[in-house]
Design a protein around this nucleic acid. Structure first.
Lengths: 141, 141
DNA sequence: CGAGATTGCTTGATCGACTCAAGTAACCGT
DNA sequence: ACGGTTACTTGAGTCGATCAAGCAATCTCG
């Protein structure tokens, strides 16, 4: 599915453009993940643990239940893409880190997720600045 | 989860802004759906059938298996949000239509999905035009 | 016309993602 | 040191998604 969607009849022109952009982004993101044998959930987690993080922090950042994270991390661990290390300062907690092969895989994934890069490349320097400013302003502010 | 994500370390400024925008959009969309007791999949389908569509067309538009659509439409039908009508021109095919209460619910959902509207409202008319143009250009040409 | 392929959808099996409730171990406060 | 809280795990259950099979309607072409 992976389609935020809004029927073809989407309101104004900007709104339509926003929808199309978001949809294209989402699609490209999912496709890139799949290319590397990652589900979107796995890619999310793998992305976050570029720097060491606890399970709880991951759950919070990804806005889901801790038990969901457990499950995903376990699968990533059996694929040896991440490791769960004990936290010497709090033995309840576990620190998740990418393994070197996790780094490689995620690197390859990012590489093939060229949508944002190529979107940026379609714009001049000035336009990029403008777009950044407009997006930020649109998002409330 | 619902986080396309890219680690905090996301490349350039525009790319970061794009990510944040997409993420905010996705989140708002999902939240609006949930507010009305809709999963994202249900909201997708319900949105599409504003105008009559066959199962196959839905599957194609939403890029998923036909059996997935069957399942979702069945659930929507038991909630009386859509109806499956026979297609007199091809008795294998079924036309999906929203019921009046489906219309109401989807209307309420769209109403509460104010992200794109308010994003647009944060911009001047000229800025909206600019943003539309930039997004389209970024998306390839 | 009619047998064989194709199309449109449904069913059933299976898996992953997600949530919730319950459990366990470690920590913290008094 | 006991009670409550925190960090995570486990188990049950649901939904979303895909695949393989099946069935009926339609199409095709000899």
């Amino acid at each position: 599915m992976a389609v935020p969607s809004v029927p073809a009849s989407a309101a104004t022109d900007v709104e339509q453009a926003m929808f199309e952009f978001v949809d294209a982004y989402n699609q490209a993101w999912e496709a890139a993940a799949n290319e590397h044998g990652l589900s979107t959930a796995h890619a999310c987690v793998l992305g976050r643990v570029e720097t060491r993080r606890s399970m709880g922090k991951l759950a919070e950042e990804l806005r889901c239940d801790a038990s969901n994270i457990t499950q995903i991390v376990v699968r990533l661990e059996t694929r040896e893409l991440v490791r769960r290390e004990p936290n010497p300062e709090d033995r309840r907690s576990r620190q998740i880190v990418r393994t070197p092969s996790g780094d490689d895989l995620y690197g390859a994934f990012e590489e093939s997720f060229e949508f944002p890069r190529s979107a940026a490349a379609n714009l001049t320097v000035a336009e990029r600045k403008q777009l950044t400013a407009l997006l930020r302003k649109a998002m409330r502010g």
